[in-house]
Design a protein around this nucleic acid. Structure first.
Length: 481
RNA sequence: GGCCCCAUCGUCUAGAGGCCUAGGACACCACCCUCUCAAGGUGGAGACACGGGUUCGAAUCCCGUUGGGGCUACCA
């Protein structure tokens, strides 16, 4: 039997990292088993049926390299089938109209202390009308869910209330539409978040009722409920408190491959090294190996992995990847929320190319790159006030150091090696240490106390500008005396 | 409240009854290297929630307790 899985997100306006992980595990399972992975947009709720929200999903999946083998399909396109299925269940006596309002249901639930809807309308012979919803007549007995990750889960049907399957408006609800579509799509494995466990018995009940009502006896899909992704408080990741938007991570400069690698480590782990490419993940992935306990989405670990991927890139690949953050006129792809902090005429691709390897190994995300090279492309360096106060105006040796630097840099050959050499010389003359002497020079030239190696930076900036910036700092340092 | 899920270092995890003196990675600390910062190297601290069983033997199996989480819509 060839496997068929689906990723079934609902459009919400952003793409959640938990959804990305679910998509990945579906994709990995399909690839590992040689099956088919399809995408179904669950937009039966009219509120969620917005074209641009659907675009977000497609865009993110494409970025992650998790585009579907089939689809995207729109659940709303199957409305006819959903309605037909409802009619079939009515015909089979598995549904009944309910005239209760939401408030009435709530009130009786409180008074009778029943878990959910108490079945008030089940035997009242309510006629179907424009204000009646359709409820599923949950049978007696127990419903057993077989879950690859969790084993067998049993539900007493008595605690499953007669849930609504179609609204009074006629709109068919999630549990119903989902099952109808899974049947139509011949889904063999349902891989989704743990938060769907309690929906599963309802869906199985519908599935089997449909098999009987239509005579089309399809085997139940096998379920695999993935552990939730949680925040530091161990709560389900929420849009309100936590960074969860995949596009935000992309715009911060995480690489898709690094992001996918990290996601793959949440609830699953490869055999040897944690750093694995997609082929390795596909070869090793097995739903049975997925963990049962929630995983904390640890951004520090994500950064570490991303930094590793960044460092492992060839210079050419790095230049392409970083171009949206540094080149005002970049190539094809551009993240949505990135702005290059200098004008196009000031950017010099050749200079950037020269310093890029020194930056590449020092950043954790691509968004950190501009801050490490902006001194090259801005007329005035962005001064970090604390560093300036410490190394320039607040350092009693700063005037002497800057004077010595200006004198030495005026006449020496202007290469990193030569600058290093003359700096060593005047450092010794001053009876100081290189690590101490470089501080005021670095802040004067780059505006910051950390950054790419100093002498290479100065060589690229050029003698005139280096001397000008040193003089400005010298003036400030002198005034501080 | 009801139903359900979960429980190994701070975090992600390895662990399928003896290979466990519990391994790795991130984070953290120290030292080395070093023009800052990274990277790299060496070392360190750090966990089987608790209580009962089963067994010659339990992190691994069973039960309970505690703790955490999810669901509980005419949303998905």
């Amino acid at each position: 039997m060839t496997t068929r899985v689906r990723f079934a997100p609902s459009p919400t306006g952003y793409f959640h990292v938990g959804s990305a992980r679910t998509a990945l595990f579906n994709w990995l399972f399909a690839r590992h088993t040689g099956g088919t992975y399809l995408l179904r947009i669950e937009d039966t709720d009219a509120e969620r049926n917005r074209e641009e929200w659907v675009d977000v999903i497609n865009r993110c999946l494409e970025w992650l390299g998790l585009s579907p083998d089939e689809g995207p399909f729109r659940q709303s396109d199957n409305a006819t089938q959903h309605t037909a299925a409802v009619d079939a269940l009515i015909g089979a006596g598995r549904l009944y109209p309910c005239a209760c309002t939401g408030d009435e249901v709530q009130a009786r639930k409180r008074d009778n202390k029943t878990p959910g809807y108490d079945g008030y309308c089940r035997d009242r012979g309510v006629e179907r009308g424009p204000t009646t919803a359709l409820r599923f007549k949950v049978p007696e007995g127990t419903t057993t869910v077989h879950d690859i990750i969790r084993g067998t889960i049993e539900f007493q049907n008595a605690v499953i209330d007669d849930f609504v399957v179609a609204k009074s408006s006629g709109a068919v609800l999630y549990n119903m539409a989902n099952v109808v579509d899974d049947r139509a799509d011949r889904i063999t494995h349902v891989v989704r978040g743990e938060d769907h466990i309690s929906n599963t018995p309802k869906q199985q009940l519908i599935w089997e009722a449909l098999s009987e009502a239509t005579g089309e006896h399809l085997p139940l899909p096998t379920y695999a409920h993935l552990p939730l992704l949680v925040d530091a408080q161990r709560k389900k990741l929420s849009k309100r408190k936590d960074p969860v938007s995949v596009e935000d991570f992309r715009d911060e400069g995480y690489l898709a491959d690094a992001f996918v690698n990290f996601l793959g480590l949440l609830g699953w782990s490869p055999k040897g090294d944690e750093q694995v490419d997609r082929a390795t993940m596909i070869a090793q992935f097995d739903l049975a190996d997925v963990n049962q306990s929630p995983a904390f989405f640890d951004v520090m670990k994500l950064r570490s992995i991303n930094a590793d991927y960044l460092r492992a890139m060839s210079l050419e690949d790095f230049l392409v990847a970083v171009s949206p953050w540094v080149d005002p006129e970049p190539g094809a792809w551009m993240p949505t929320a990135v702005e290059v902090p200098w004008p196009a005429e000031r950017f010099d691709a050749e200079r950037f190319r020269t310093i890029a390897p020194l930056v590449q190994e020092r950043v954790t995300r691509l968004s950190e790159v501009p801050g490490m090279v902006d001194f090259l492309f801005l007329d005035e360096p962005v001064i970090d006030a604390a560093s300036w106060a410490k190394a320039v105006t607040g350092e009693s040796d700063a005037p002497a150091i800057l004077d010595a630097a200006i004198a030495a840099f005026t006449s020496c050959e202007f290469t990193a090696a030569a600058l290093h050499e003359v700096t060593l010389a005047f450092t010794e003359a001053l009876g100081s240490k290189l690590r101490k002497v470089q501080a005021p020079i670095r802040v004067a030239v780059t505006g910051r106390s950390v950054g790419p190696p100093l002498f290479e930076s100065m060589e690229l900036l050029g003698r005139d500008e280096v001397l000008r910036r040193l003089s400005v700092a010298r003036g400030a340092a002198g005034a501080g005396q």
